[in-house]
Amino acid sequence: MSAGLPLIVTRADPGGAATAARAAAMGLDVRHLPLFAAHALPWTVPDPAAFDALLLTSARAVELAGPGLARLAGLPVHAVGAATAAAADAAGLTIEAVGDRDAQGLLDAMTSQGIARILWLCGQDRSAFDTRGAALVPLACYAVDAVPPPPGWAEAIAMPAVLLAHSVRGARRLAELIPAGRGRLALAAISAGVAAAAGEGWAAVAVAERPDDAALLAEAHALCHKGRQMGSFER
């Protein structure tokens, strides 16, 4: 039986497909409608000896880095979220710390420990951080490109539903594609910053307690049930 209002998953695959599968296993009525597509970028592996640690803010960096990732196995990994840490561990990397908030919080913790030379394996589009004086070197190994909304998008957002926002960029895309009519749609965001990037006007907004899929889906599950109990989020 469907658990309330539909849940719309828009993140790029393979992460989007994994999220959709987890949501379906929770009994949610999932609409898998990716608004982005991810692909690997060529990159040159730097000398690991030039760094004290490897920062990972997305599991996608691990999934798309390719064989060069193995050459960084000697660096202790500081990962944002359990999913990123699990991907790194499965790839044979050594997990030193897992951040349960956001990337800035983890970076603050790293610099407070005196970690001064940090390699950040990341995407082409990335956030800016306060490095607290540390040398943070971003190295893009993948890109995520916006794609046209897939078939079924217009119909999905025309009815009450819950949307997932996994990133600032994803939240901004939702705001761009849904400039009006947000009063019938609820938003579950992976962080407060992501929620802010989506703008105002949503019927309801929930923020995950931790920056990972499990916490985000827990909030989405509650929103879907809330919408069912109310009949919709329409004001």
Score class of each variant (00 low, 15 high):
residue 1 M to S: 13
residue 2 S to I: 12
residue 3 A to R: 14
residue 3 A to H: 13
residue 5 L to H: 02
residue 8 I to V: 15
residue 10 T to S: 04
residue 10 T to Q: 04
residue 11 R to M: 06
residue 14 P to R: 06
residue 16 G to S: 08
residue 16 G to K: 03
residue 18 A to W: 03
residue 19 T to M: 06
residue 21 A to C: 13
residue 23 A to V: 11
residue 23 A to L: 04
residue 23 A to D: 04
residue 24 A to F: 05
residue 25 A to H: 09
residue 25 A to Q: 14
residue 25 A to S: 15
residue 26 M to R: 15
residue 27 G to F: 09
residue 28 L to F: 03
residue 29 D to A: 15
residue 32 H to C: 14
residue 32 H to M: 11
residue 35 L to S: 02
residue 36 F to K: 00
residue 36 F to Q: 05
residue 39 H to R: 15
residue 40 A to M: 09
residue 41 L to M: 11
residue 44 T to D: 14
residue 44 T to S: 15
residue 45 V to Q: 04
residue 46 P to D: 08
residue 46 P to W: 11
residue 47 D to F: 11
residue 48 P to W: 03
residue 49 A to T: 12
residue 50 A to M: 13
residue 53 A to F: 10
residue 57 T to R: 07
residue 60 R to L: 13
residue 62 V to H: 02
residue 65 A to D: 04
residue 66 G to E: 06
residue 66 G to Y: 07
residue 67 P to E: 10
residue 67 P to Q: 07
residue 70 A to V: 14
residue 70 A to S: 15
residue 73 A to K: 08
residue 75 L to D: 00
residue 79 A to F: 01
residue 81 G to V: 01
residue 85 A to R: 04
residue 86 A to E: 08
residue 89 D to F: 11
residue 91 A to D: 06
residue 94 T to L: 12
residue 94 T to K: 14
residue 95 I to V: 12
residue 95 I to A: 07
residue 97 A to F: 07
residue 98 V to M: 04
residue 98 V to E: 02
residue 101 R to S: 12
residue 104 Q to E: 06
residue 106 L to W: 05
residue 107 L to I: 07
residue 108 D to H: 11
residue 110 M to F: 06
residue 111 T to N: 10
residue 112 S to F: 10
residue 115 I to T: 07
residue 121 L to H: 03
residue 122 C to L: 09
residue 124 Q to Y: 11
residue 127 S to P: 07
residue 127 S to Q: 14
residue 127 S to N: 11
residue 128 A to G: 14
residue 129 F to A: 08
residue 129 F to V: 10
residue 134 A to N: 01
residue 137 V to R: 14
residue 140 A to V: 01
residue 142 Y to N: 06
residue 142 Y to P: 04
residue 142 Y to V: 00
residue 143 A to T: 01
residue 146 A to Y: 08
residue 147 V to I: 14
residue 151 P to D: 12
residue 152 G to M: 11
residue 153 W to V: 09
residue 154 A to E: 13
residue 156 A to T: 10
residue 156 A to N: 01
residue 158 A to D: 13
residue 161 A to H: 04
residue 162 V to L: 03
residue 164 L to Y: 01
residue 165 A to Q: 04
residue 166 H to P: 07
residue 167 S to L: 02
residue 170 G to P: 06
residue 170 G to K: 01
residue 173 R to L: 05
residue 174 L to M: 10
residue 178 I to G: 00
residue 178 I to L: 05
residue 179 P to V: 12
residue 181 G to K: 07
residue 182 R to C: 01
residue 183 G to V: 08
residue 187 L to Q: 03
residue 188 A to V: 10
residue 189 A to Q: 02
residue 190 I to Q: 04
residue 192 A to V: 11
residue 192 A to I: 10
residue 196 A to K: 01
residue 199 G to Y: 04
residue 200 E to P: 05
residue 200 E to Y: 08
residue 206 A to S: 12
residue 208 A to G: 08
residue 208 A to E: 00
residue 209 E to G: 15
residue 212 D to F: 06
residue 212 D to K: 05
residue 214 A to K: 08
residue 214 A to H: 09
residue 219 E to Q: 15
residue 219 E to K: 07
residue 220 A to T: 09
residue 221 H to V: 00
residue 222 A to M: 09
residue 222 A to N: 07
residue 224 C to W: 05
residue 226 K to S: 12
residue 226 K to E: 15
residue 232 S to I: 12
residue 233 F to N: 03
residue 234 E to R: 15
residue 235 R to Y: 09
